[in-house]
Design a protein around this nucleic acid. Structure first.
Lengths: 353, 353
DNA sequence: GTGAAAGCGCTAACAG
DNA sequence: CTGTTAGCGCTTTCAC
C-alpha cells in the first residue's frame, strides 16, 4: 500500500507526519514527540510552536507507529461470555466509560457462551496488541492463566475468581445469605431458590455461591431445603417465568417466598405468580439480586451489586497495574446493599412444615 | 522500552520475530511473510518449513508492525449510543460474531447517549487504527460524514440513515404501519402509541418513522389520532410502565389498544394494564416491535426486526467494501415479520368514537 | 533543552 | 518462486 523503496518526494497531501510538524515548527522530530506526548523536557517556547504547528496541520499520531516504537498500545481487551445480558452489558458500560476517560481504546472479545472461548484466548496472548485485559466471569484453568501471564499482559477479573490476578466482585456467598435471611426474618419458612445454570462449567461461579449462601442461611435457621424448591433457569426472564410457574402451580407444595439469583429471574417469577392469581407479597415474596432497572416496575426487592461500578473499578485497578503502582494482585469486594421495595413482606399464612 | 540504538545481540528469549522464523526455516523474511499471510507465491516445500518453524517457535505476527508496514489493521470500529439496551447489545452480538469469524478485531466506542459523541468521532478519524467502522443508530451531520470519508474509512450504518454510506435497517415506516393495521384489522379504533424519545436529536430516528407509520395507518382508516394517546417514554420497561399506567388509569378516555415502538415498552404497558386489573387482550391489546425474549413470557405480539442479523449483515457489507467488491453505497432493508402471540385480539367492547 | 540516528517488526516493490 | 532492501511513522537513547 505505502510504496516502500520509493522516496516520498511529493507534497504531503497525505496525513501529516511527525516530520511535517517538526519542519513547520522548526524543531526536530524528537522534540515534537516529546512535546506532544509529555514525556521528557521541552521548553515552553518549543512546546507552543509544536502545538501550533500540529494544530494547523491537523496532525495526529499514528498509533501503529507509536505502538511499534514504544511497545505500548493504549488498548485494553475485554473478554466476556455475553454482551446481550444485563450484568455483562452493564459491566461493559462501566468499563467502556472508564477506559474512554483514560484515553484507552477497548477491544471487545465476546465468547458467545463457550463458542469463541478458545479462539479468543488464543488471540489474546498472540496478537501482541493489548496492554492489558479484563475478563468478566471467566474461569481459567491453570494452563490458560499461565499463558496469559507469561505473555506479560496484566489481567483483572470481574465477577469471579481468577487465580493470580486482581479481581473485583461482590461477596456472592454473603449476598445469598443476606437475601435469604431477609426472607427468614420476615417470617418465611418455605423458601425456594431460583438459580442460574452453570453453562459449560465455565461461567457463573457466582450462581453457585449464592445458592450456597441460601443453603447456609436455611440450615442455620433450621429450615428444610426441599430439592424441588431448588430451581435452575438460564438467567433469562422467560425461562425463570416458566420454571416458577411450574413450581407455583401446585397448591399443595408451594413456597411462600423465592430468592432468585438475578432480578430478571425474580421478575419472571413475579409474573408467573400473578398469572396464577397469587398476590405478591401476600401469597409470595420475591427477592432478587442486581438492581436491574426492570425491578422498579415490579416493585422488586433486591440487592444492588453495582455492576457498572464493578466495571469502573476493574479499569481503575488495571491502570494501577499498568503504571507500576500496587502491582500485587488484590481481591476487591464491592459492597452490595439492599433496595427494599414491595415484593417482600410477611407471609399471609405462615405455614409450619 | 525496546532499546533503540543498541543492537540486539542477546539470545531471543523475547517473543520470536519473523527473522527468527526465517533463520530456522532457512529462508528469507519475505518468504516467511508470504507463507504466513498467504499473499504471494510460495512453494509448498518452503511453506511447510516455515509453518513448522513458526509452530515450533510459537511465532505470532506483531500486529503493530504488520499494520504499520501494510496500512491495514484488521480492526473495525463499532460506535453505538448504548451497550446496555437490548437493540444495541443484540446488534453488537451479531457484529462481534461476524467479525470474529472473519478474523477481525473489534474496537468498541460507546457514546453513553451523547456524552462521548465528540470524543469518539474525533478519535475515530484521527487515530489511524481502524480499517472501517460501523455506526449503530448514529445521526451524522454533513461535516462529520465528510470528515469520516476523507479519512478514508469505509462506513456502514445500522438502524438509521447515513448519507453517503451503506446502511442496513428495517423499514420503520412500514413496520409502524403494519403494526397499527394489525390492530385496526382486529377491530380496534381507539389506538394509542407509545414511542421513544429522541434524545438530543441525535439518535433513534426509527422512533419517529414508526410513529409516522402509525399516524398514516390511522389516517388512512379514518381514525382519530388523539394527542393524549401519543406517549413518549425513554425506551425502558419501567418508564413505559409508568406512562401507560397514567394513560390507562382514566376509564373515561381509554384506548383499547397500544402500539409500542419496542417490546420492552410494550411489556411495561402490559404490566401496567394488569396492575389496573385490565385484561390483555380483553380490555387492552398490545403490540410491540423487536422480538425481545422478554416478550415470550408476556405473550406479546410483536414484529421481529432481527436485530442480530442486522449486525451480521452490516459486517458482511463492510467486508465487501474492504475487499473492493461492490463499493457503491447500498441501502439494505431487512424484512421484519410478525410474531403473533396472545396480547392482541378483538376488543371486548368496541366503542365508536 | 535539543538533535541525530538507530531501531521497533513487518511488508512489498523490484530484480532475479 | 525467492531474496534484497527500503521504508511504514514514531520513540528513545546518547551526546551535546
Amino acid at each position: 500500500m505505502a510504496a516502500p523503496g520509493r522516496p516520498r518526494d511529493d507534497i504531503p497531501v497525505n496525513p501529516p507526519r511527525l516530520q511535517d510538524v517538526a519542519a513547520r515548527a522548526g524543531v526536530s522530530t524528537a522534540t515534537v514527540s516529546r512535546a506532544l506526548s509529555g514525556n521528557g523536557q521541552v521548553s515552553p517556547r518549543a512546546r507552543a510552536r509544536v502545538q501550533q504547528a500540529a494544530q494547523e496541520l491537523g496532525f495526529v499520531v499514528s498509533y501503529h507507529a507509536s505502538s511499534l516504537a514504544s511497545g505500548r498500545s493504549r488498548n485494553i481487551g475485554v473478554a466476556l461470555p455475553y454482551v446481550d445480558r444485563w450484568y455483562f452489558s452493564t459491566v461493559l458500560e462501566g468499563v467502556a466509560g472508564a477506559l474512554m476517560e483514560a484515553g484507552y481504546d477497548l477491544s471487545l472479545y465476546n465468547f458467545e457462551g463457550d463458542r469463541y472461548r478458545e479462539t479468543v484466548l488464543t488471540d489474546f496472548l498472540l496478537r501482541k496488541r493489548l496492554d492489558a485485559a479484563v475478563a468478566v466471569s471467566l474461569q481459567l484453568d491453570p494452563a490458560e492463566t499461565e499463558q496469559l501471564f507469561s505473555a506479560g499482559i496484566p489481567l483483572v477479573g470481574v465477577g469471579g475468581p481468577l487465580v493470580g490476578a486482581s479481581t473485583i466482585s461482590i461477596d456472592d456467598l454473603d449476598v445469598g445469605r443476606r437475601a435469604t435471611e431477609h426472607l427468614i426474618g420476615l417470617g418465611h419458612r418455605r423458601i425456594a431458590h431460583l438459580g442460574g445454570a452453570e453453562e459449560g462449567r465455565r461461567y457463573f461461579p457466582m450462581s453457585n455461591d449464592r445458592r450456597t449462601g441460601y443453603e447456609q442461611a436455611m440450615t442455620k435457621a433450621g429450615l428444610p431445603i426441599e430439592p424441588t424448591w431448588s430451581l435452575i433457569a438460564d438467567y433469562t426472564f422467560t425461562d425463570a417465568y416458566q420454571r416458577a410457574k411450574n413450581l407455583l402451580a401446585d397448591p399443595t407444595d408451594r413456597p411462600t417466598a423465592i430468592f432468585a439469583a438475578s432480578d430478571e429471574m425474580a421478575a419472571g417469577a413475579i409474573l408467573a405468580a400473578r398469572d396464577l392469581e397469587l398476590t405478591v407479597p401476600g401469597d409470595l415474596s420475591v427477592i432478587g439480586i442486581d438492581a436491574h432497572p426492570i425491578g422498579e416496575a415490579f416493585g422488586l426487592t433486591t440487592i444492588d451489586q453495582h455492576a457498572r461500578q464493578q466495571g469502573v473499578h476493574a479499569i481503575r485497578r488495571l491502570l494501577q497495574h499498568l503504571t507500576g503502582q500496587n502491582t500485587e494482585p488484590t481481591n476487591e469486594i464491592v459492597p452490595a446493599n439492599f433496595v427494599v421495595r414491595s415484593s417482600t413482606g410477611t407471609p399471609a399464612n405462615p405455614t409450619a412444615i
